[in-house]
Design a protein around this nucleic acid. Structure first.
Lengths: 149, 149
DNA sequence: ATAAATGCAAAGGATTTGCCGTCAA
DNA sequence: TTGACGGCAAATCCTTTGCATTTAT
């Protein structure tokens, strides 16, 4: 995900607009939670976000983080990523994209490749399944984990 | 997954062999748990398996089901499927395959398509990621859920 | 002002774990 | 007999929820 200041700004602007449209209150907690997601490509989980914000917002509670993330997801402001078993992880990148998953450290990196966006699956769907979309997970080792092997 | 009697038999035979090779005891519980997985394409979760076996093995405990599934997975006798948030689900189909996931009822169906087995991703991996394999999830509606919409 | 949002703590579900009795090699 | 295995219950981890209070619009 592009995490340049410009791209982050853009995401935040869109976020404020969408909240207004949706009639969602723009509380400091919500803004802070969204900011964390908008400015990282790390796909943090609820607990990660809670820990990152606790110092600056001491009153913040886990419940709010969970509730807010679920709310954001239901309004398609962020998406939920299921990697391995562990906790759910979140992503503010709403562009069509796929994921590289490190099988060792579980790091998740977005990547885009037009060639993977149109797969020959429509005709392939067996059993009358009606395919709406697809997700590709590339499993492998991130640079850091390659060194440690 | 092919659930014809012949295919199931074949899986069971392989399973027994692998257990012997690995020095794993072939207990009634383990066999029963594997049989459930070998004879269904439903990708049941631990609780599903427990419920299905409880009537025939009243002494069975959840702990054993969980422990056994984890053991199987660590020896690559079954694989763990992460669909949505809910519980982990298991699959005795070890052939290379992908998954159709119903976004409505969460049904998971295996499917194979040679065209999806070689994707143009090797060169695509950004940031020095070393890609070892990939998984394609096709998201859509199963026949039953299409009718209910 | 008023409905919505937060904090807190308790509840919930899925899974793991420790302990002890049991069983098979 | 001896280590592996299963049953049971307690513990753990992640997440949701109810309720009283505070806040955004």
């Amino acid at each position: 995900m592009d995490t340049s200041p410009t791209a982050i700004e853009k995401r935040l602007t869109t976020f404020r607009e969408r909240c207004a449209q949706l009639g969602l209150a723009l509380t400091p907690q919500r803004l802070a939670i969204y900011e964390v997601l908008a400015s990282t490509g790390e796909h943090p989980g609820a607990e990660d976000i809670y820990q990152r914000l606790k110092p600056s917002i001491p009153s913040l509670s886990r419940g709010t983080v969970y509730r807010t993330l679920t709310l954001f997801e239901s309004h398609h402001l962020v998406s939920r990523v299921h990697v391995s078993d562990e906790q759910a992880r979140f992503d503010a990148n709403l562009d069509d994209h796929h994921h590289l998953v490190c099988v060792r450290c579980q790091r998740v990196v977005d990547f885009q490749d037009a060639r993977l966006d149109r797969l020959p699956f429509d005709e392939a769907a067996p059993g009358g399944f009606h395919v709406l979309g697809h997700r590709v997970h590339l499993l492998g080792l991130c640079p850091q984990c390659q060194e440690q092997v």
